[in-house]
């Protein structure tokens, strides 16, 4: 496989993890988040600092990075207990900008220069090849799918859906909405942290601009275009939105325009996404069957 293809596939894998993790917060628990890149950044930066500055081995650094991201995710998820919908969207945008600014301006985090020389994972002193790294990425993708699926089918998943549908009605049905929002934020940010580890380790160099607000919008777009509250949807969305700019490379100058157009057309004709409940994909399959 060519290096280009492997890079694309790894990028897709990382975005699948991001889209599925955001889907737990947005699709399952109904808490709109426009700052998901912040959690991705926290995972990437904790991993980078632990492995570069404190020379922790890959596994230890990863575990710590996930724990840190989860903890910060829960703390930053606390506003969602007080504000909802539009206000939560604005709050999460704010979180994204603050996190980016902190990484960009504090020297401990490398400042505007970012952090370089982040190590690739190793086995027995031997560095991973790109193909092995891709296998690792898709192992984590598989893990994320399993977690998403298990969560969907658990009581916690059912409770999250109820909170999403109607917070007061869920509350009088014995569900503590705060508890399940926090659980969703914890799982969502832990998985975003995982994506951060893969990204930092794969790129070898990270800077705060990699995790800017437009990235959060892209992740949310993957979830919405594919179909929120499904598992196939965000996976498809990640494929589509990573591949589209690559396919449109010859018309480089217009690709953001096409990208924007796609989102507008989607919102107009497929508001529940390609794989959503009323999505076009299921309609086509049903037509073929009958």
């Amino acid at each position: 496989m060519s290096a280009y293809l492997i890079t694309i596939l790894i990028t897709i894998g990382i975005y699948i993890i991001l889209a599925l993790s955001l889907n737990i917060i947005v699709g399952y628990a109904g808490q709109i988040s426009l700052g998901h890149a912040a959690f991705w950044a926290i995972g990437a930066y904790s991993f980078a600092i632990l492995s570069v500055k404190y020379s922790l081995p890959f596994i230890e650094a990863s575990v710590c990075a996930i724990l840190i991201t989860t903890l910060i995710g829960v703390i930053l998820g606390l506003p969602s207990l007080r504000v909802s919908e539009d206000f939560l969207a604005i709050t999460t945008i704010g979180i994204n900008f603050i996190v980016q600014a902190v990484f960009n301006n504090i020297n401990y985090f490398g400042g505007a220069m970012g952090i370089g020389n982040i190590p690739f994972p190793q086995i027995k002193g031997k560095m991973f090849s790109s193909a092995q790294f891709m296998a690792l990425t898709y192992l984590f993708v598989f893990l994320t799918i399993v977690i998403s699926y298990t969560f969907r089918r658990s009581w916690a998943g059912l409770a999250s859906f109820a909170v999403k549908a109607d917070e007061i009605a869920s509350n009088v049905s014995g569900i503590d909405p705060k508890r399940f929002k926090i659980i969703a934020f914890a799982i969502g940010s832990a998985l975003a942290g995982l994506a951060g580890i893969l990204y930092a380790s794969f790129m070898g160099f990270i800077s705060a601009n990699d995790f800017s607000f437009p990235v959060s919008v892209t992740i949310l777009a993957m979830v919405m275009v594919g179909g929120e509250n499904t598992i196939t949807g965000p996976i498809f969305g990640a494929f589509l939105l990573v591949l589209l700019p690559e396919i449109f490379r010859p018309i480089h100058n217009y690709r953001m325009l096409l990208y924007g157009l796609l989102l507008v057309v989607m919102m107009r004709f497929q508001p529940s996404g390609f794989f959503g409940e009323k999505g076009i994909v299921w309609k086509l399959i049903r037509v073929k069957k009958s």
């Binding site: 298990t150 916690a156 869920s170 014995g174």
Partner: peptide, 18 residues
């Protein structure tokens, strides 16, 4: 979802299949 009131207070049971 309301039947789950029996499980929601317990974190391990919360993650079991409904």
């Amino acid at each position: 979802a309301a039947y789950g009131v029996r499980f929601y207070h317990n974190i391990t049971k919360s993650f079991s299949k409904w």
